[in-house]
Amino acid sequence: MRKEFLPSLLLTVLCILFFSGFYPLLMWGVAQLAPNKGEGFVVSQNDKVYYKNIAQNFTGDKYFWPRPSAVAYNAAGSGGSNKGPSNPDYLASVEARIDTFLVHNQGVKRSEISSDMVTASGSGLDPDISVASAMLQVQRVAHARQISAEDVKQIVNKVKQGPLLSIFGPGKVNVLELNIKLDQIKQ
């Protein structure tokens, strides 16, 4: 072991410099060519800057709501509820979310609610909801903003994204983009 110690130590030092020094520096260089220089994708509106991929908490009726978050949408942390499928506390909290949703969305039938609106996401920061869940909220948003449901539906259709290259994975709607578009028509 003693014979291997010095070579191992020297090789370790060089590897640290190479894999933890050179490699991240190279990638930092690449990032300078990327949108927003690798500091995360942002969208701006009225001089305010938001992270496109980080869900924000929306509670008002005039905004589309994101999925429930186990970390209260605090992006200084992240995580899911980690509740098991048979946990009685968990099932009670889902029941409560369904009730809240129904109270705020008059006219929506219980059977129409898609489970993504009442279950917490894995990261607690999921920026997207399903297209079906967005459509369910159209009436509420239109009513709260005193505009026609048809206009709101058009915005959802404009913002929604299909699968990757139209063939891989699910479709989705980014809630933040949707709400920014909504505020823009008001002006």
Binding site: S111, T119, S121, G122
Partner: peptide
């Protein structure tokens, strides 16, 4: 257990999952 509550699960079991992956 969630089906019993009478809502639909078109995306499957979504607790702890992200919409963009499914």
């Amino acid at each position: 257990e969630i089906s019993k509550m009478g809502i639909s699960q078109p995306l499957g079991n979504m607790e702890g999952k992200e919409v963009r992956f499914g």
